[in-house]
Every structure is written in structure tokens, then in C-alpha cells.
């Protein structure tokens, strides 16, 4: 077997799970941790979404301004966005073969999730701080 002596990655690092994906098992574990954390958060979110269908602006903002709902909503956003970001990352890695396209798509969607997540959390905080009693 040909040895690549020029690599700055040590053999130990190679053995510790840096395979064809170029990163270790941290991603896999994070996908599972966010999955488990999302069980209660998702149950709460689905129940809330169904209850909030068609409610007025005042009802919605009063609901979101309650500390418990605001905190759960922020946790839901952080956890689920992270889970979705990790999940869609794997899909792109699997299906986009071209290196440049893949990297651009990966960076673009990461920035997209960060921007959307910040916008949602900002909106939640704004409602919580201005509409709360």
C-alpha cells in the first residue's frame, strides 16, 4: 500500500474516525442527541400549532409572551434547526458529487439556517419583551 507521507494528518487522527466523510462521528451523535431532545419539544410544538390555528394577533402574541412558551419556543428553534441542518447536510454530502457545488450548497444552507434561526428567536424575544405583561 502506498503511504502518503506528506499528509499533516497523523495516523492516529486517521484511525479515529476520519473516513471518507472527512469528519468523525460527532455529527452522527449530534443528530441523535437533537433527535432525543426534540421528542418533548416537538410534541409541545405540534399541540401548540394546532391550538393556535386561526387565533388573532393578540391571542398569538399573548401566548408567545408567556415565559414558558417563549422559552420552549426558543429551545425548539435551536434544537430543531440544528437537527435539520445536520440532516440536510448529510443529504447534500450524499447526492452532490461535484466538490465545488457541494461546498457552496453546504455553506449556503448553513448560513440560511443561522439567519432564519436568528430571525425567529429575535421575533420571539421581541414579542416576549413587548407584549408580555
Amino acid at each position: 500500500m502506498k503511504q502518503n507521507n506528506h499528509s499533516i494528518i497523523s495516523d492516529v487522527k486517521k484511525v479515529k474516525g476520519l473516513g471518507s466523510a472527512h469528519h468523525g462521528n460527532g455529527h452522527w451523535m449530534a443528530q441523535r442527541i437533537t433527535a432525543i431532545a426534540s421528542i418533548p419539544l416537538v410534541l409541545w410544538a405540534v399541540y401548540s400549532v394546532f391550538n393556535l390555528q386561526g387565533v388573532s394577533y393578540l391571542e398569538f402574541t399573548a401566548w408567545l409572551a408567556s415565559p414558558l412558551n417563549a422559552i420552549l419556543a426558543i429551545l425548539f428553534v435551536l434544537n430543531t434547526f440544528y437537527h435539520a441542518s445536520l440532516g440536510t447536510q448529510v443529504i447534500v454530502e450524499d447526492y452532490i458529487a461535484n466538490f465545488v457545488f457541494r461546498k457552496i450548497k453546504l455553506i449556503a444552507q448553513k448560513l440560511f439556517f443561522i439567519a432564519l434561526g436568528v430571525a425567529v428567536i429575535f421575533s420571539i424575544l421581541k414579542i416576549a419583551f413587548t407584549m408580555g405583561i
Binding site: 394577533y57 435539520a84 440536510t88 432564519l116 429575535f122 420571539i124
Partner: peptide, 21 residues
Amino acid sequence: TGVILTGGLVLLSIWVIAAGL
């Protein structure tokens, strides 16, 4: 379903952002 749910997440986000506006 993971991809569909990601789309759903974007819609829910727009709902909350609209309320913030």
C-alpha cells in the same frame, strides 16, 4: 420526510416572524 419537515420549519418560522413584524 426529513426534507418535508425542514420545509415545514421554514413555514412555522415565517408565521412567528410575521407576528414579530
